[in-house]
Design a protein around this nucleic acid. Sequence first.
DNA 1: ATGGCTATCATAGATAGA
Length: 274
Amino acid sequence: MKIATWNVNSLRARADRVEAFLERRDMDVLAIQETKCKDENFPWELFERAGYEVAHHGISQWNGVAIASRVGLSDVQRGFPGQPHFGKGGKDPQEEARALSAVVGEEADGVEPVRLWSLYVPNGRGLQDEHMPYKLEWLRVLAEHAAAELAADPRARTAYVGDWNIAPRDEDVWDIEMFLRDGYTHVSEPERAAFRAFEELGFTDPVRPRHPGPDVYTYWDYTQLRFPKNKGMRIDFPLLSPALAETVTDAWIDREERKGKGASDHAPVVVELG
DNA sequence: ATGGCTATCATAGATAGA
């Protein structure tokens, strides 16, 4: 089973790219982040045409997460238990569409089911911004949920994939000195600790050992020729439970998708399971 | 020349991204 995670930065703007990617990479499952639409504007027909079932969680023009699968899609869950809400200036805090889960894979097809989460972790916006404590609390509660799942079944086949908006290691950004000097988000110790909490539970990224850095990224800013100069960030990760990690046959970043006109600023990350 | 982007919708500038 081939699973990809991809922050598409608007699904409607990227519809042709997404359809071509599914075909070109012969993908079974795609976890999507930043669909940037409500259900009523979601391009359902794209997935139907391509032969995929799809679930979407979109509340406004912001955020939005989806899971498309051609190997079964069941037990869809929008958000996670206790997911923190956010409202700018403390006003009218609401749930944001940043987490969607489903079981993919069918035993009948010889594909063992996987509990998959498509995640768009809050950005944080600034080290002193109110979005930052929201980001950290969001991750803390999600990690609690992941811990409970694993405690209930240590052999659970679970994948938390998506845009984590955290660069866990210094080599995961093109210029760590600048990031630290100028107080950028994504590299601060509290953010890294929040990511590490998942690793400490036993979740692992299958890509890094196969494609070690430096200079290996999943995101490149649209500005300042960042992609041609390969000044990027590694912030999109598939984190796999121990039992699932054992079945990985390959894992890689589809850098080709960042090229050309009409690309997302993120590249898809692919995991192949045996 | 040291900056150069892309997307959303109340379609003009605000907001968000990272």
